[in-house]
């Protein structure tokens, strides 16, 4: 993205990092089994990238941003999330 410079590099375009899709970094991809999910939202809490969205029941991934770190799968108390190889 190219934008005009501002005075003093003050950036008022808050949250604009969202235009950059870190999902492209992913080599592993989380897959959630919503049947198993108990909606404890631990994965949501621990995600460093805010790439997990809470649903009324269960969760969903925002693959635009998920870097595939695997914290969610490891921290899931009921093993509802598995990491699979990312297919591009």
């Amino acid at each position: 993205m190219t934008v005009k410079i501002t005075i003093g590099a003050v950036n008022r375009d808050h949250g604009s990092s969202r235009i950059y899709k870190t999902g492209g970094w992913r080599t592993m991809r989380p897959v959630v089994d919503l049947e198993k999910c108990i909606s404890c939202y631990k994965c949501y809490d621990y995600c460093p990238d805010g790439a997990i969205k809470k649903l009324d029941k269960g969760i969903t991934y925002d693959f635009d941003y998920c870097k595939g770190c695997g914290i969610c799968a490891k921290e899931c108390p009921v093993q509802a999330i598995v990491m699979i190889k990312e297919e591009k």
């Binding site: 969202r18 995600c47 990238d49 925002d62 941003y65 770190c69």
Partner: peptide
């Protein structure tokens, strides 16, 4: 703390600042 930041995958600081 918006998505799209360039922290390494699994960065503890990302979780910390977000929360």
């Amino acid at each position: 703390f918006a998505s799209g930041h360039r922290a390494c995958a699994g960065c503890g600081e990302g979780t910390a600042v977000r929360q």
